[in-house]
Computed example of a mutant assay.
Amino acid sequence: MARPAATSPFVPDPAAQRKRLLGERGETIAARHLTGRGMVLLDRNWRCEAGEIDLVLRDGQVLVICEVKTRTSTDYGAPLEAVDRRKVDRLRRLAARWLRVHDCHPEDVRIDMVGVLAPPGRPVEVEHVEAIG
C-alpha cells in the first residue's frame, strides 16, 4: 500500500500560495478603493495571537476596521457571504486590542467589509459595506 507523501513546511503548497496571493491582491484592491474615497490607511495585516485585521483606516474621525474577502467566482457564494456573526465578534475583539496596543482613542469605531470579485480575464468588482457589526 502506498504511503501518502509527507508534507514539509519548507515545500510550499501551490493551492495555499494561490489563495494567499489572491487575498493579498484583494486587500490591495480594497485599500486602493477605500483610500480613493478619502480614507487614510493606517495599518494592513495587523496580527496578534487572537487573529488578524486586514485593513485599519481612518474615515474622518472614525477608525475603520475592515475585513476583505476576495473570490474569483461566486460558485461558493459571494465574497460578502463569507463573514458570519462569529467573524464580526472576532473583529470587535481585535479592534479593541488594536486600540489598546496603539493607545488610540477615536471618536467612533466602525467595522466595514469589502468584497472583491476578481474573475480571471474579467473586470474586478468591489463592494463596500459600512458598519457590518
Score class of each variant (00 low, 15 high):
Leu41Ile: 09
Leu41Ser: 14
Leu42Val: 05
Leu42Lys: 01
Leu42Cys: 04
Leu42Asp: 00
Leu42Thr: 02
Leu42Ala: 06
Leu42Asn: 03
Leu42Arg: 02
Asp43His: 13
Asp43Ile: 01
Asp43Ala: 14
Asp43Gln: 04
Arg44Met: 03
Arg44His: 04
Arg44Val: 13
Asn45Val: 04
Asn45His: 10
Asn45Met: 07
Asn45Gly: 00
Asn45Ser: 15
Asn45Asp: 11
Asn45Glu: 01
Trp46Met: 04
Trp46Gln: 04
Arg47Pro: 08
Arg47Tyr: 11
Arg47Gly: 07
Arg47Lys: 12
Cys48Ser: 11
Cys48Ile: 05
Cys48Gly: 10
Cys48Val: 10
Cys48Pro: 09
Glu49Tyr: 00
Gly51Cys: 04
Gly51Leu: 06
Gly51Thr: 02
Glu52Ile: 03
Glu52Thr: 06
Glu52Pro: 06
Ile53Asp: 04
Ile53Thr: 06
Ile53Gly: 03
Ile53Val: 09
Ile53Phe: 08
Asp54Trp: 00
Asp54Arg: 04
Asp54Ile: 06
Asp54Ser: 01
Asp54Gly: 03
Asp54Asn: 15
Asp54Ala: 04
Leu55Gln: 03
Leu55Arg: 05
Val56Asn: 07
Val56Met: 08
Val56Gly: 02
Val56Leu: 06
Leu57Glu: 02
Leu57Asp: 11
Leu57Trp: 02
Leu57Ala: 10
Leu57Gly: 00
Arg58His: 00
Arg58Pro: 03
Arg58Gly: 06
Arg58Thr: 07
Arg58Glu: 09
Arg58Asn: 05
Asp59Pro: 08
Asp59Arg: 13
Asp59Phe: 13
Gly60Arg: 14
Gln61Lys: 15
Gln61Asp: 07
Val62Arg: 10
Val62Cys: 12
Val62Ser: 14
Val62Ile: 14
Leu63Arg: 11
Leu63Gln: 07
Leu63Val: 14
Leu63Asn: 03
Val64Thr: 12
Val64Gln: 00
Val64Asn: 13
Val64Pro: 06
Val64Ser: 11
Ile65Lys: 02
Ile65Ser: 03
Ile65Arg: 00
Ile65Ala: 01
Cys66Glu: 10
Cys66His: 11
Cys66Met: 14
Glu67Asn: 10
Glu67His: 00
Val68His: 02
Val68Asn: 01
Lys69Asn: 14
Lys69Trp: 01
Lys69Val: 05
Thr70Ile: 08
Thr70Phe: 08
Thr70Leu: 05
Thr70Cys: 15
Thr70Gly: 01
Arg71Tyr: 13
Arg71Ala: 09
Arg71Gly: 01
Arg71Met: 01
Ser73Leu: 07
Ser73Arg: 12
Ser73Pro: 09
Thr74Pro: 09
Thr74Ala: 09
Thr74Leu: 12
Thr74Lys: 06
Asp75Ala: 11
Asp75Met: 13
Tyr76Ser: 13
Gly77Cys: 15
Gly77Gln: 12
Gly77Arg: 13
Gly77Asn: 10
Gly77His: 10
Gly77Lys: 08
Ala78Pro: 10
Pro79Ser: 07
Pro79Thr: 10
Pro79Asn: 15
Leu80Pro: 00
Leu80Thr: 13
Leu80His: 14
Leu80Val: 13
Glu81Tyr: 04
Glu81Cys: 13
Glu81Ile: 12
Glu81Lys: 08
Ala82Gln: 14
Ala82Met: 13
Val83Phe: 05
Val83Trp: 02
Val83His: 04
Val83Leu: 07
Val83Ala: 09
Asp84Gln: 15
Asp84Leu: 13
Arg85Thr: 10
Arg85Pro: 00
Arg85Trp: 03
Arg86His: 14
Arg86Ser: 11
